[in-house]
Design a protein around this nucleic acid. Sequence first.
DNA 1: TCAAAAGTGTTAATAGTACACCCATGA
DNA 2: TCATGGGTGTACTATTAACACTTTTGA
Lengths: 212, 212
Amino acid sequence: MTAYTSYPKFLISVDCIIFGFEDGHLKVLIHQRPYEPGMGELSLIGGFVQSNESVDSSAKRILKEFTGLNNVYMQQLAAFGDVERDPGERVISIVYYALINVDNYDMHLSDIHNAKWVDVDELPALCFDHNEMVQKARRMIGKTIKTEPIGSNLLPRYFTLGLLQTLYESILGTSIDKRNFRRSISEKDFIQATNLIDRTSRRGATLYKFTI
Amino acid sequence: MTAYTSYPKFLISVDCIIFGFEDGHLKVLIHQRPYEPGMGELSLIGGFVQSNESVDSSAKRILKEFTGLNNVYMQQLAAFGDVERDPGERVISIVYYALINVDNYDMHLSDIHNAKWVDVDELPALCFDHNEMVQKARRMIGKTIKTEPIGSNLLPRYFTLGLLQTLYESILGTSIDKRNFRRSISEKDFIQATNLIDRTSRRGATLYKFTI
DNA sequence: TCAAAAGTGTTAATAGTACACCCATGA
DNA sequence: TCATGGGTGTACTATTAACACTTTTGA
């Protein structure tokens, strides 16, 4: 019993924008909403905050339920609190975005949830305000990748510089000059060449790894 | 009645970090908590979200209650959701920061609430996680002011370049070379000289205004 | 032999940093 | 007359942008 008892309480959902990089495109994991309202509509991965967990823990739990992954790069994006944002009942959503390596996650779990990857540039209409959430997250990672090597979360352990450049281009939505890109990357020190060669291209390309 | 009824609900507070610029220092408006737990401890300006308002509206309402101001520059900072962050009861806080001109606000209102301005560099211990909130907001406006003319929200209509520089220095926590500062500002186009002169310095200084 | 992706340097433009003196005036 | 804040330019460095050809090899 506290002094707060006269104030209303709210359902708090957590929505996770799970980004992956596949076939040269930045993708988002979505699924069909399993309950009303909006059952069957496309939706971000989400759930409700429980009494015994922090909001951050809730986001981690939900991510693990859908991907099987722990220790994922995940950041809080924003809270979405319009009164009518969920047509069923008042729900305030706290949104996180995560960057994962699509090769590592548990496909069985995402099968159970009917989850699938969709290209962030060809995003279908999602329920409620979920499209807005994705756009905001996208702008955020676009800013972040200019200063921090968050690509390490999206790429496999070994990758070519061509793939790394494609990743940057798909996140930034621009094309980048190859020589400038390779120089600017090599001036940083978060990747290093290995003596492995990728043989999927004719000539073969040096495989790199992140040092971090 | 919806499918959500089995999930717990939470009190949602909104805390506002109200920044002002006074006597050459960046300041924050704080007051003494008027209720338990922590009654009398120093606290950010806050309140609880009501059923009929969005979270954004709630932040605007709270800001207006304490300052009398509408149409203020205000941005959402983050949600703070640790289970034990409020020792009284589980409360999830959604935090906003606002930039106001200290000359415009309604001092009568802030008197009622016992609010006072404190230097952000000499912030006393605030209740709960409020110090952390202020530090995060501070880093945010430090980033923002490098690219956007948010100083317009903190300064009076007419101001000298010396005052503008002091504002930047207090936000960034660094000293700036006067000639470099004046050049970089004049290369942008968000301020313009007026033919007014500030007479508080011996020589007198040109007064500028924001063009936006 | 040729298509496809890998790999590689130089120059120009822009942005940022360092630095010191004279000016106008009120007290 | 002097203390105070106002006002000004140049040289150096770092960062970013523009731009084209050769290499390797599997099909």
